[in-house]
Design a protein around this nucleic acid. Structure first.
Lengths: 169, 169
DNA sequence: AATTACATGTAATCCGTTACATGATTGA
DNA sequence: TCAATCATGTAACGGATTACATGTAATT
Protein backbone atom coordinates (compact mmCIF):
# COMPACT_ATOMS: atom_id res chain seq x y z
CA UNK A 1 0.00 0.00 0.00
CA UNK A 2 1.46 3.29 -1.04
CA UNK A 3 1.33 6.50 0.92
CA UNK A 4 -1.49 7.80 -1.25
CA UNK A 5 -3.84 4.94 -0.45
CA UNK A 6 -2.90 5.22 3.19
CA UNK A 7 -3.96 8.88 3.21
CA UNK A 8 -7.19 8.14 1.39
CA UNK A 9 -7.95 5.38 3.85
CA UNK A 10 -7.29 7.47 6.92
CA UNK A 11 -9.43 10.25 5.51
CA UNK A 12 -12.21 7.72 4.87
CA UNK A 13 -12.45 7.40 8.63
CA UNK A 14 -12.73 11.13 9.18
CA UNK A 15 -11.30 14.46 8.14
CA UNK A 16 -7.79 15.27 9.24
CA UNK A 17 -4.80 17.52 8.75
CA UNK A 18 -1.38 16.33 7.65
CA UNK A 19 -0.20 16.82 11.17
CA UNK A 20 -2.96 14.62 12.54
CA UNK A 21 -2.32 11.91 9.97
CA UNK A 22 1.29 11.84 11.06
CA UNK A 23 0.24 11.46 14.68
CA UNK A 24 -2.06 8.59 13.80
CA UNK A 25 0.58 6.63 11.94
CA UNK A 26 3.32 7.62 14.35
CA UNK A 27 1.73 6.99 17.73
CA UNK A 28 -1.97 6.36 17.24
CA UNK A 29 -4.15 3.45 16.18
CA UNK A 30 -2.20 2.90 12.96
CA UNK A 31 1.27 2.91 14.37
CA UNK A 32 1.53 -0.83 14.87
CA UNK A 33 0.95 -1.68 11.23
CA UNK A 34 1.93 1.39 9.27
CA UNK A 35 4.29 4.34 9.20
CA UNK A 36 5.04 7.55 7.37
CA UNK A 37 6.87 10.82 7.85
CA UNK A 38 5.95 14.44 7.11
CA UNK A 39 8.23 14.33 4.12
CA UNK A 40 5.94 11.82 2.46
CA UNK A 41 2.57 12.84 3.91
CA UNK A 42 2.49 16.50 2.95
CA UNK A 43 3.50 16.03 -0.69
CA UNK A 44 0.99 13.17 -0.99
CA UNK A 45 -1.83 15.35 0.33
CA UNK A 46 -0.92 18.13 -2.08
CA UNK A 47 -0.95 15.78 -5.03
CA UNK A 48 -4.17 14.04 -4.03
CA UNK A 49 -5.81 17.46 -3.79
CA UNK A 50 -4.59 18.41 -7.26
CA UNK A 51 -6.05 15.17 -8.57
CA UNK A 52 -9.37 15.85 -6.92
CA UNK A 53 -9.29 12.74 -4.75
CA UNK A 54 -9.38 14.76 -1.56
CA UNK A 55 -10.51 18.27 -0.72
CA UNK A 56 -8.85 20.88 1.40
CA UNK A 57 -10.36 23.50 3.66
CA UNK A 58 -8.01 26.00 5.18
CA UNK A 59 -8.76 26.97 8.72
CA UNK A 60 -7.16 30.13 9.97
CA UNK A 61 -6.27 29.98 13.64
CA UNK A 62 -5.13 32.73 15.93
CA UNK A 63 -3.24 30.95 18.70
CA UNK A 64 -2.05 28.12 16.50
CA UNK A 65 -0.58 27.89 12.99
CA UNK A 66 -3.22 27.72 10.29
CA UNK A 67 -4.56 24.29 9.43
CA UNK A 68 -5.47 22.48 6.24
CA UNK A 69 -8.26 20.09 6.93
CA UNK A 70 -8.51 17.40 4.29
CA UNK A 71 -11.56 15.31 3.45
CA UNK A 72 -12.18 12.46 1.03
CA UNK A 73 -14.01 13.38 -2.18
CA UNK A 74 -16.43 11.07 -4.00
CA UNK A 75 -13.75 10.41 -6.59
CA UNK A 76 -11.30 9.57 -3.84
CA UNK A 77 -13.78 7.25 -2.21
CA UNK A 78 -14.16 5.36 -5.47
CA UNK A 79 -10.43 5.06 -5.94
CA UNK A 80 -10.05 3.75 -2.39
CA UNK A 81 -12.89 1.31 -2.88
CA UNK A 82 -11.20 0.03 -6.01
CA UNK A 83 -7.86 -0.40 -4.24
CA UNK A 84 -9.51 -2.51 -1.58
CA UNK A 85 -10.83 -5.00 -4.12
CA UNK A 86 -7.42 -6.49 -4.82
CA UNK A 87 -5.83 -8.79 -2.25
CA UNK A 88 -3.63 -6.98 0.26
CA UNK A 89 0.07 -7.61 -0.20
CA UNK A 90 1.74 -9.79 2.43
CA UNK A 91 2.94 -8.12 5.61
CA UNK A 92 6.44 -6.81 5.94
CA UNK A 93 7.77 -7.35 9.40
CA UNK A 94 11.21 -6.24 10.35
CA UNK A 95 12.24 -7.20 13.85
CA UNK A 96 15.67 -6.29 15.07
CA UNK A 97 14.81 -8.02 18.30
CA UNK A 98 14.37 -11.43 16.68
CA UNK A 99 17.47 -10.94 14.57
CA UNK A 100 19.49 -9.89 17.61
CA UNK A 101 18.21 -12.86 19.59
CA UNK A 102 19.21 -15.23 16.86
CA UNK A 103 22.62 -13.73 16.27
CA UNK A 104 23.37 -13.35 19.96
CA UNK A 105 23.53 -17.10 20.38
CA UNK A 106 26.80 -17.31 18.52
CA UNK A 107 28.54 -14.11 19.59
CA UNK A 108 26.93 -12.83 22.81
CA UNK A 109 24.84 -15.52 24.53
CA UNK A 110 24.97 -13.73 27.88
CA UNK A 111 22.99 -10.95 26.36
CA UNK A 112 19.95 -13.11 25.57
CA UNK A 113 18.13 -12.99 28.93
CA UNK A 114 18.38 -9.19 29.00
CA UNK A 115 17.20 -8.96 25.45
CA UNK A 116 14.13 -11.01 26.33
CA UNK A 117 13.39 -9.11 29.53
CA UNK A 118 13.56 -5.80 27.73
CA UNK A 119 11.27 -7.16 25.09
CA UNK A 120 8.73 -8.35 27.63
CA UNK A 121 8.72 -4.89 29.16
CA UNK A 122 8.24 -3.47 25.71
CA UNK A 123 5.28 -5.74 25.04
CA UNK A 124 3.75 -4.81 28.38
CA UNK A 125 4.05 -1.19 27.46
CA UNK A 126 2.43 -1.74 24.08
CA UNK A 127 -0.35 -3.76 25.64
CA UNK A 128 -1.10 -0.99 28.07
CA UNK A 129 -1.16 1.59 25.30
CA UNK A 130 -3.47 -0.48 23.15
CA UNK A 131 -5.75 -1.21 26.12
CA UNK A 132 -6.03 2.48 26.81
CA UNK A 133 -6.84 3.18 23.19
CA UNK A 134 -9.51 0.51 23.14
CA UNK A 135 -11.81 2.63 25.26
CA UNK A 136 -11.67 5.43 22.75
CA UNK A 137 -12.23 3.48 19.56
CA UNK A 138 -15.50 3.85 17.75
CA UNK A 139 -15.92 1.76 14.57
CA UNK A 140 -16.33 -2.01 14.58
CA UNK A 141 -13.33 -2.56 12.31
CA UNK A 142 -11.29 -0.06 14.21
CA UNK A 143 -11.87 -1.97 17.43
CA UNK A 144 -11.31 -5.28 15.69
CA UNK A 145 -7.95 -4.19 14.34
CA UNK A 146 -6.87 -2.81 17.66
CA UNK A 147 -7.78 -6.03 19.41
CA UNK A 148 -5.92 -7.97 16.76
CA UNK A 149 -2.87 -5.98 17.75
CA UNK A 150 -3.56 -6.70 21.40
CA UNK A 151 -3.95 -10.43 20.80
CA UNK A 152 -0.66 -10.58 18.94
CA UNK A 153 1.22 -8.53 21.52
CA UNK A 154 -0.12 -10.67 24.35
CA UNK A 155 0.77 -13.90 22.60
CA UNK A 156 4.29 -12.63 22.03
CA UNK A 157 4.70 -11.53 25.62
CA UNK A 158 3.35 -14.82 26.98
CA UNK A 159 5.57 -16.82 24.68
CA UNK A 160 8.61 -14.92 25.84
CA UNK A 161 7.85 -15.11 29.53
CA UNK A 162 7.13 -18.82 29.35
CA UNK A 163 10.19 -19.57 27.26
CA UNK A 164 12.88 -17.30 28.59
CA UNK A 165 14.03 -19.82 31.17
CA UNK A 166 15.46 -21.84 28.30
CA UNK A 167 18.36 -19.40 28.30
CA UNK A 168 18.84 -18.98 32.02
CA UNK A 169 20.58 -22.23 32.81
CA UNK B 1 19.50 -3.14 11.51
CA UNK B 2 21.22 -2.43 8.25
CA UNK B 3 21.96 -4.95 5.57
CA UNK B 4 25.57 -5.21 6.68
CA UNK B 5 24.75 -6.32 10.20
CA UNK B 6 22.20 -8.72 8.79
CA UNK B 7 24.85 -10.36 6.64
CA UNK B 8 27.32 -10.54 9.51
CA UNK B 9 24.63 -12.11 11.67
CA UNK B 10 23.63 -14.71 9.15
CA UNK B 11 27.27 -15.60 8.59
CA UNK B 12 27.70 -15.95 12.36
CA UNK B 13 25.39 -18.94 12.11
CA UNK B 14 27.35 -20.56 9.32
CA UNK B 15 29.13 -19.89 6.05
CA UNK B 16 26.99 -19.00 3.08
CA UNK B 17 26.96 -17.58 -0.42
CA UNK B 18 25.06 -14.46 -1.42
CA UNK B 19 22.55 -16.67 -3.13
CA UNK B 20 21.97 -18.67 0.03
CA UNK B 21 21.60 -15.55 2.15
CA UNK B 22 18.94 -14.34 -0.22
CA UNK B 23 17.09 -17.64 0.11
CA UNK B 24 17.22 -17.44 3.90
CA UNK B 25 15.78 -13.94 4.08
CA UNK B 26 13.37 -14.55 1.22
CA UNK B 27 11.84 -17.89 2.11
CA UNK B 28 13.81 -19.41 4.98
CA UNK B 29 13.94 -18.96 8.73
CA UNK B 30 14.52 -15.23 8.49
CA UNK B 31 11.77 -14.37 6.09
CA UNK B 32 9.18 -13.54 8.71
CA UNK B 33 11.22 -10.81 10.34
CA UNK B 34 13.64 -9.63 7.72
CA UNK B 35 14.09 -9.07 4.02
CA UNK B 36 16.66 -8.16 1.38
CA UNK B 37 17.24 -8.45 -2.34
CA UNK B 38 20.27 -9.41 -4.43
CA UNK B 39 20.73 -5.77 -5.24
CA UNK B 40 21.57 -5.06 -1.63
CA UNK B 41 23.13 -8.35 -0.55
CA UNK B 42 25.88 -8.68 -3.16
CA UNK B 43 27.24 -5.15 -2.81
CA UNK B 44 27.15 -5.52 0.99
CA UNK B 45 29.18 -8.74 0.83
CA UNK B 46 31.73 -7.13 -1.46
CA UNK B 47 32.14 -4.19 0.85
CA UNK B 48 32.33 -6.28 4.02
CA UNK B 49 35.05 -8.34 2.38
CA UNK B 50 37.04 -5.22 1.47
CA UNK B 51 36.74 -4.11 5.09
CA UNK B 52 37.96 -7.45 6.35
CA UNK B 53 34.82 -8.23 8.33
CA UNK B 54 34.11 -11.32 6.28
CA UNK B 55 36.24 -13.61 4.16
CA UNK B 56 35.56 -15.05 0.77
CA UNK B 57 36.54 -18.41 -0.69
CA UNK B 58 35.80 -18.97 -4.32
CA UNK B 59 34.62 -22.42 -5.20
CA UNK B 60 34.80 -23.40 -8.83
CA UNK B 61 32.01 -25.72 -9.89
CA UNK B 62 31.59 -27.63 -13.09
CA UNK B 63 27.85 -28.19 -13.44
CA UNK B 64 26.87 -25.03 -11.60
CA UNK B 65 28.08 -21.43 -11.67
CA UNK B 66 31.06 -20.76 -9.46
CA UNK B 67 30.33 -19.88 -5.85
CA UNK B 68 31.71 -17.39 -3.40
CA UNK B 69 31.45 -18.81 0.07
CA UNK B 70 31.62 -16.15 2.74
CA UNK B 71 32.60 -16.60 6.36
CA UNK B 72 32.75 -14.27 9.35
CA UNK B 73 36.23 -13.07 10.31
CA UNK B 74 37.35 -12.36 13.87
CA UNK B 75 37.06 -8.65 13.17
CA UNK B 76 33.55 -9.18 11.84
CA UNK B 77 32.59 -11.20 14.88
CA UNK B 78 33.70 -8.33 17.11
CA UNK B 79 31.74 -5.80 15.11
CA UNK B 80 28.65 -7.96 15.29
CA UNK B 81 29.11 -8.51 19.01
CA UNK B 82 29.32 -4.78 19.48
CA UNK B 83 26.18 -4.14 17.44
CA UNK B 84 24.26 -6.54 19.63
CA UNK B 85 25.11 -4.61 22.78
CA UNK B 86 22.82 -1.72 21.95
CA UNK B 87 19.08 -2.17 22.30
CA UNK B 88 17.38 -3.38 19.13
CA UNK B 89 15.28 -0.76 17.39
CA UNK B 90 11.51 -1.23 17.60
CA UNK B 91 9.87 -3.49 15.04
CA UNK B 92 8.54 -2.13 11.81
CA UNK B 93 5.36 -3.87 10.84
CA UNK B 94 3.54 -2.98 7.69
CA UNK B 95 0.27 -4.79 7.23
CA UNK B 96 -1.85 -4.02 4.22
CA UNK B 97 -4.35 -6.50 5.56
CA UNK B 98 -5.04 -4.53 8.73
CA UNK B 99 -5.16 -1.28 6.81
CA UNK B 100 -7.54 -2.75 4.26
CA UNK B 101 -9.74 -4.17 7.01
CA UNK B 102 -9.94 -0.82 8.70
CA UNK B 103 -10.59 1.17 5.55
CA UNK B 104 -13.07 -1.35 4.17
CA UNK B 105 -15.53 -0.53 6.91
CA UNK B 106 -16.29 2.86 5.40
CA UNK B 107 -16.09 2.12 1.69
CA UNK B 108 -16.49 -1.64 1.13
CA UNK B 109 -17.91 -3.40 4.21
CA UNK B 110 -19.05 -6.42 2.18
CA UNK B 111 -15.44 -7.19 1.49
CA UNK B 112 -14.52 -7.69 5.14
CA UNK B 113 -15.51 -11.35 5.61
CA UNK B 114 -13.56 -12.36 2.49
CA UNK B 115 -10.59 -10.36 3.63
CA UNK B 116 -10.63 -12.20 6.95
CA UNK B 117 -11.11 -15.64 5.41
CA UNK B 118 -8.20 -15.09 3.03
CA UNK B 119 -6.10 -13.97 5.93
CA UNK B 120 -6.95 -17.03 8.00
CA UNK B 121 -5.91 -19.21 5.07
CA UNK B 122 -2.71 -17.24 4.85
CA UNK B 123 -1.98 -17.74 8.53
CA UNK B 124 -2.66 -21.46 8.18
CA UNK B 125 -0.19 -21.62 5.36
CA UNK B 126 2.45 -19.76 7.35
CA UNK B 127 1.86 -21.97 10.37
CA UNK B 128 2.35 -25.07 8.26
CA UNK B 129 5.56 -23.68 6.79
CA UNK B 130 6.96 -22.77 10.17
CA UNK B 131 5.99 -26.14 11.63
CA UNK B 132 7.82 -27.89 8.83
CA UNK B 133 10.89 -25.76 9.41
CA UNK B 134 10.84 -26.48 13.11
CA UNK B 135 11.98 -30.04 12.54
CA UNK B 136 15.06 -28.85 10.73
CA UNK B 137 16.22 -26.16 13.12
CA UNK B 138 19.34 -26.72 15.15
CA UNK B 139 20.34 -23.91 17.55
CA UNK B 140 18.42 -23.08 20.70
CA UNK B 141 17.84 -19.48 19.68
CA UNK B 142 16.98 -20.49 16.17
CA UNK B 143 14.21 -22.75 17.45
CA UNK B 144 13.11 -20.15 19.96
CA UNK B 145 12.72 -17.50 17.28
CA UNK B 146 10.87 -19.83 14.98
CA UNK B 147 8.46 -20.78 17.73
CA UNK B 148 7.97 -17.12 18.53
CA UNK B 149 6.82 -16.72 14.95
CA UNK B 150 4.54 -19.71 15.31
CA UNK B 151 3.01 -18.41 18.53
CA UNK B 152 2.27 -15.06 16.94
CA UNK B 153 0.81 -16.56 13.78
CA UNK B 154 -1.41 -18.89 15.76
CA UNK B 155 -2.66 -16.12 18.01
CA UNK B 156 -3.51 -14.03 14.97
CA UNK B 157 -5.32 -16.88 13.27
CA UNK B 158 -7.28 -17.76 16.40
CA UNK B 159 -8.22 -14.15 16.97
CA UNK B 160 -9.52 -13.85 13.43
CA UNK B 161 -11.48 -17.08 13.43
CA UNK B 162 -13.07 -16.28 16.77
CA UNK B 163 -13.89 -12.73 15.83
CA UNK B 164 -14.89 -12.86 12.19
CA UNK B 165 -18.55 -13.46 13.01
CA UNK B 166 -18.69 -9.85 14.15
CA UNK B 167 -18.89 -8.91 10.50
CA UNK B 168 -21.22 -11.62 9.27
CA UNK B 169 -24.49 -10.31 10.61
C1' DA C 1 14.14 28.70 31.16
C1' DA C 2 13.62 25.05 28.23
C1' DT C 3 11.16 21.71 25.94
C1' DT C 4 7.19 19.94 23.80
C1' DA C 5 3.11 20.60 20.99
C1' DC C 6 1.11 22.81 17.22
C1' DA C 7 1.44 23.24 11.97
C1' DT C 8 3.28 23.12 7.13
C1' DG C 9 6.49 22.38 3.71
C1' DT C 10 10.98 21.49 0.75
C1' DA C 11 15.56 19.68 -0.58
C1' DA C 12 19.21 16.63 -0.03
C1' DT C 13 20.24 12.31 0.80
C1' DC C 14 20.02 7.54 1.66
C1' DC C 15 18.67 2.99 0.88
C1' DG C 16 16.73 -0.52 -1.35
C1' DT C 17 14.09 -2.78 -5.04
C1' DT C 18 13.46 -3.77 -9.93
C1' DA C 19 15.14 -4.70 -14.08
C1' DC C 20 18.81 -5.99 -16.79
C1' DA C 21 22.74 -9.10 -18.21
C1' DT C 22 24.47 -14.05 -18.63
C1' DG C 23 24.15 -19.00 -18.95
C1' DA C 24 24.24 -24.10 -17.82
C1' DT C 25 21.36 -27.76 -15.68
C1' DT C 26 17.62 -30.14 -13.80
C1' DG C 27 13.00 -31.39 -13.09
C1' DA C 28 8.10 -31.28 -14.60
C1' DT D 1 9.92 -28.15 -24.02
C1' DC D 2 9.46 -24.94 -20.63
C1' DA D 3 10.07 -23.29 -16.24
C1' DA D 4 12.73 -23.22 -12.23
C1' DT D 5 17.16 -23.55 -9.84
C1' DC D 6 21.69 -22.37 -9.41
C1' DA D 7 24.84 -18.17 -9.21
C1' DT D 8 26.75 -13.38 -9.45
C1' DG D 9 26.63 -8.73 -10.34
C1' DT D 10 25.40 -3.63 -11.94
C1' DA D 11 22.61 0.44 -13.16
C1' DA D 12 18.52 2.89 -13.14
C1' DC D 13 14.92 4.12 -10.64
C1' DG D 14 11.71 4.96 -6.91
C1' DG D 15 10.35 5.99 -2.44
C1' DA D 16 10.88 7.48 1.94
C1' DT D 17 13.51 9.50 5.73
C1' DT D 18 16.30 13.22 7.63
C1' DA D 19 17.39 17.61 8.09
C1' DC D 20 16.35 22.14 7.29
C1' DA D 21 13.28 26.33 7.57
C1' DT D 22 9.86 29.08 10.51
C1' DG D 23 7.28 30.61 14.51
C1' DT D 24 3.81 30.83 18.47
C1' DA D 25 1.97 28.97 22.75
C1' DA D 26 1.45 25.87 26.34
C1' DT D 27 3.57 23.03 29.57
C1' DT D 28 7.17 21.57 32.90
Amino acid sequence: MDIRTLCLGILSLGNATGYEIKKLVGEGSFSFFSEASYGSIYPALTKLTEEGLIECKEKVQSKRPDKKIYSLSDAGRKVLEHSLQSAPKPDKNKSEFLAALLFAEAVAPDRIPDLIDERIAHHDHQIKQLSDMRNQEDGKASLFVLEYGLAVQKAARDYLSNGKNRFNG
